[in-house]
């Protein structure tokens, strides 16, 4: 369980990183927190010829609130978000989700953007990105572009990213004032990737009726899915598969249960003005 040989680069600014990526092309892999990439290297499931380690690019280690948007730089660790009470108070779904990701040691190293780029369909951040209509800001030698979360996830561990591209930040518009949100999941053990996850945002009208609702699901398809916010139909909108942890039939039923629970909890929170 030793990685195959690779070249190692550790640029200190984005420009240098992008130049390296452009020069190295298809054969390079970015290294952020390493919580997904290092195991793949050790198992020789990934065999890049070169690693471009972005951990020394201090300028990417940030997150901030810009009005109603949470902006997360590529080196922001998942734990940084977990410890920011202001962010957690602005979005209960994020507050629910982050502690469910692995364990503290993993969140201390693992980055939010790395999780998005890794695109595990059962991971929490991709579900949040799809729920909250996040956008990813991407740089390459060719310049900068934005990708909407709904266009970013292309399949199992596959994204819209092209060789040479670096995600510099992800922008998460937070639920508006008066809305409620929630994230719930079922995992085999604490910290495991979810068997299934559901996240919802519910906004209320002045008369107390539900004005708008959003629902996102993870673990039920090859990508995180933005689904119709109606538990009765979600099972028809996902394509779960069998794995060693649960058969597809179980997941179909779970999608319905979790969708209902997430929507209910988000609505309850909206009524308590708990975003």
């Amino acid at each position: 369980m030793k990685p195959a040989q690779f070249e190692y680069h550790a640029p200190t600014d984005v420009g240098e990183a992008v130049r390296l990526l452009s020069a190295l092309g298809e054969n390079a892999r970015l290294l952020a927190g390493g919580q997904s990439l290092m195991p793949m290297l050790n198992l020789r499931l990934a065999r890049p010829e070169a690693i471009v380690d972005i951990n020394r690019i201090a300028a990417l280690a940030y997150h901030r609130l810009e009005d109603e948007t949470l902006v997360i730089g590529a080196l922001c660790r998942q734990r940084d978000i977990e410890r920011d009470q202001e962010v957690l108070a602005r979005c209960a779904a994020i507050a629910d989700a982050v502690p469910l990701i692995g364990h503290i040691g993993i969140r201390n190293r693992g980055t939010v953007v790395g999780s998005l780029a890794h695109a595990d369909p059962a991971a929490e951040w991709p579900v949040l990105a799809v729920l909250l209509d996040a956008t990813l800001e991407v740089e390459s030698a060719a310049g900068r572009r934005s990708i909407a979360a709904k266009d970013f996830f292309k399949g199992l561990f596959a994204t819209d990213l092209r060789a040479g591209e670096l995600v510099v930040e992800a922008r998460f518009p937070l639920p508006p004032e008066g809305a409620g949100s929630a994230f719930i999941e079922v995992a085999r053990r604490h910290g495991d990737f979810a068997l299934g996850a559901a996240a919802a945002v519910v906004e209320l009208a002045a008369d107390g009726s539900v004005a708008a609702a959003r629902l996102a699901l993870g673990g039920f398809d090859s990508v995180p899915v933005r689904a119709t916010p109606d538990p009765a139909v979600v099972a028809t909108e996902v394509h779960p598969v069998d794995d060693v942890h649960a058969p597809a039939a179980y997941r179909s039923k779970l999608a319905e249960t979790l969708a209902r629970r997430a929507l209910e909890l988000a609505e309850q929170r909206a009524r308590k003005a708990d975003r």
Binding site: R188, H190, G191, D192, F193, V244, H245
Partner: peptide, 10 residues
């Protein structure tokens, strides 16, 4: 990842 041992959290 797939052979699940109980951890301290369990």
């Amino acid at each position: 990842l797939d052979y699940l041992l109980p951890t301290s959290a369990e």
